[in-house]
């Protein structure tokens, strides 16, 4: 799993040397920024279900045709799966906040995403709408500190870009 620490170690290992001062400094930089993202991760985890539910509702509101017979949100099973997908994205974003990089989203969310949605005939626009809603819903300092919100929004932007 890619993070600052593992990247530094992989580079040091490739050169066969002990961690150098500059290696330690880049790890220190990552640790200093960790407080904000851990705060965001904590807040998101405590409210993940509601955040995902609101995002899901917003995208169905914008694309009501999804409720029509034969569409992706038509039956109860489909609805549950749509809501679950949004929740998956929010969970992966929480992982990214914990790790301090986009590794979890890249490996477990984005890799193969295009192929899966094409094979299942799912539109990506509703996903974009759901994540965009979450992107604009967060508010500092009501939900979390400004720095934490920046980290959180950056990851939502990253996920939105991967779907666009």
């Amino acid at each position: 799993m890619k993070s600052v620490v593992t990247t530094v170690i992989a580079a040091a290992d490739a050169a066969g040397r002990f961690p150098s001062t500059s290696d330690l400094e880049s790890v220190q930089g990552s640790i200093q920024r960790a407080a904000a993202r851990l705060e965001a991760a904590e807040k998101l985890a405590s409210n993940l279900d509601n955040v995902a539910r609101e995002a899901y509702d917003a995208c169905i509101k914008k694309y009501p045709y999804l409720n029509n017979a034969g569409e992706a949100n038509s039956t109860d099973t489909f609805k549950a799966k749509c809501a679950r997908d949004i929740k998956h994205y929010m969970r992966l974003i929480q992982y990214c906040l914990v790790v301090g990089g986009t590794g979890p989203l890249d490996e477990w969310g984005i890799a193969g995403q295009r192929e899966v949605y094409r094979a299942l005939g799912l539109p990506t626009a509703p996903y974009v709408e759901a994540l965009s809603f979450a992107r604009n819903r967060g508010c500092a300092p009501r939900d979390m500190s400004a720095q934490a919100l920046t980290e959180y929004n950056a990851l939502l932007d990253y996920a939105i870009n991967s779907l666009s």
Binding site: M1, V5, A41, E42, L44, A45, H88, Q94, V98
Partner: peptide, 23 residues
């Protein structure tokens, strides 16, 4: 290769839950 953070993430992913032990 994992670090302390990604280890927590991999453990949480195994049960499709969020990382709860932030402390």
């Amino acid at each position: 290769m994992l670090d302390a953070f990604s280890r927590a993430v991999v453990a949480a992913d195994a049960s499709t839950s969020t990382v709860s032990d932030i402390n």
